[in-house]
Design a protein around this nucleic acid. Structure first.
Lengths: 343, 343
DNA sequence: CAAAATACTTAACGCGCGTAAAAATAAAGT
DNA sequence: ACTTTATTTTTACGCGCGTTAAGTATTTTG
């Protein structure tokens, strides 16, 4: 960095003694030039401060190196974590991730995809809300840009889906709960904002049937993403009314469970699997805060990293071959049981 | 949208009957053209699907409309919320926010600022880690791009700072705790990753002195952003050793308090201000989860929205006048006491 | 060592838009 | 109707880089 600032590739060509087209090749793919010239370029790069102008590059390249990453809500630590993993995978593969949150509003998902269009992304990794009404929009978007879905599936749409096998994971915890105490009833939101919730309900029903128990489902009113609040008020109402037919409640997700635990505490109901406990509560997702609830929450851990990495690598495979997948792929990872104090 | 897709401004000029330079003016500022031509353009816009190419626009504009927003850690709901508010403020003012998280790693803050440089932002809103060692870098960055700091201050650096008045807020809760029970001791991390922590310790000391009580400070080992874990293990250790000289603990932030509450529960220590409670615990920040702890956490709420909006509007003011502030501005908002069950 | 294959240089065009200058037109004022 | 003033149109160049084509240099091959 001993020299003046380089303004453009032309100037860098002059000071480095390499022609501009060769430099252009190098910046697009350092491996595409001869080893000896690559060394000359990289030596010059240590002496002069130059980086190609991103706007000019993106304007002229047919396909950018941008990858759009869209999640429903970054304020939810689950998506914050998985979004981070996806970002890292993109960076590692030499792409520029652009992380967008839909802030819990399905309408924003459309806007985000529209905004991404302007950035001409090479591909998109999308954790959709999964509303049926958005299916057509997303399908349409997927026609112009390769899209890999993760976390929530939309049947038959986009190139691939990567997520957790809710049937495996729910069966795992139902089995554990049945084995260790009373069979669980199921607590969820009446109008879930996510297809995983439907899968989990279905998985609960099937699992209970397999284990020879009668299922019981309790659905809370309320919409949106205020899961803790809904879990607390509606779950609290059910608890104080003594509505649950068993002493074990499996919540559709951890945030609902966190709300319920809070309400149980307020009602003086002792939660846990030990002596003197009146209620067992379990969740699903292993939310970052579940370790610090009172008592700590027994739940299912999703393999964030595996899902993120597989989703990203699937997209990269499509981008490398420059052809869409001949057949839609679905990859499901197993959930793991995390036993803590609450159940 | 009854027509073919428009490829560039030239084509849109042809179909709309407006010259390209006038269109260019319009897209830069719709108010800058005569009302009648503006109407003609906007009518054409409803008929044809055209939007300027963002890359070409940004390449040629002297100053882009991009605003960098850098926060220390989006996985922390506090920054997730305040980052969201800042984004909205930028959007409302016609800028394009680019939200970057440093993922809890101070090194990443440098990388993020470096990455922003490539995007030639008109300005940057930065919630810094506040390490003394980064001061020079940030100061340097601030010379090339107008920067407004928020949440955490770095004395004398950048155009302005907007945050919470820790002296006011800590005094508020200390006063409340003294009034309603035993005067509090103070629990924090030994090597805090944030200058606010230092301010709060200082504020605690001063406030205790003003109220005529002897201060007691307990510092936990541990680094990084795993506040809950540190609060739980170190706080738990102190509690079980009976180390606290009073029955009231003021934590430097809510996440530490959440960890402590979890540990207290595990130890069977009853927390709260009611009869039969052994310990009172209070926090600071009104973290989104503090409402659902057991018991719900008494804390100080920061005015997220006010901080975000003021920081943004301060930056816009600088951008509009195209001159740096003659004098560095510091704006501090008051915190509000949120009384819940824990203290 | 000559021929073939590979990598590079030179020269030139295009991408889509900002912007400046001069000429033409429209609106406002008297 | 004639200036004055505000807008728009025409024309043209530049931004920084991707990319191509033709020619030159270098490396590889037999």
């Amino acid at each position: 960095m001993n020299q003046r600032k380089i303004r453009n590739m032309e100037e860098f060509a002059a000071v480095s003694g390499i022609s501009r087209p060769t430099l252009s090749k190098y910046f697009n793919d350092p491996e595409s030039v001869r080893q000896s010239t690559r060394e000359r370029i990289e030596k010059a790069l240590t002496l002069y401060d130059y980086r190609p102008n991103v706007f000019a590059v993106n304007q002229n390249r047919r396909r950018t190196k941008n990858i759009g990453v869209v999640v429903p809500n970054l304020a939810d630590p689950f998506f914050s974590e998985i979004g981070r993993e996806v970002e890292l995978a993109c960076l590692a593969a030499g792409y520029s991730p652009i992380l967008l949150s839909s802030h819990g509003k399905p309408e924003q998902e459309r806007d985000n995809l529209e905004a991404l269009r302007a950035l001409k992304p090479a591909g998109v990794l999308l954790a959709p809300f999964g509303r049926a009404s958005d299916k057509a929009d997303i399908e349409d978007f997927g026609k112009s840009v390769p899209v890999v879905l993760f976390d929530a599936n939309i049947e038959g749409v986009c190139e691939a889906f990567v997520g957790t096998d809710n049937f495996q994971s729910v069966d795992l915890i139902v089995e554990y709960l049945c084995r260790s105490g009373e069979p669980p009833c199921f607590f969820e939101m009446k109008s879930p904002s996510n297809p995983n919730a439907n899968k989990r309900r279905q998985a609960y029903l099937e699992s209970m049937q397999r284990h020879g128990h009668a299922p019981h489902i309790y659905q809370a009113e309320g919409e949106g993403w205020k899961f803790e609040e809904i879990g607390s008020t509606e779950g609290g109402r059910l608890m104080s009314a003594g509505a649950f037919v068993t002493n074990t409640v499996l919540c559709s997700n951890d945030r609902l469970a966190i709300g319920m635990l809070s309400a149980a505490y307020g009602l003086g109901i002792r939660v846990g699997h030990g002596e003197g406990s009146a209620l067992r509560i379990a969740g699903h997702d292993d939310h970052p805060f579940s370790r610090y609830t009172c008592p700590p929450l027994t739940t299912i851990a999703q393999d964030y990293a595996a899902i993120a990495n597989r989703a990203a690598s699937t997209l990269f495979r499509i981008l490398d071959t420059e052809t869409r997948l001949s057949e839609r792929e679905e990859t499901l990872f197993d959930g793991k049981l995390v036993m803590r104090g609450s159940a």
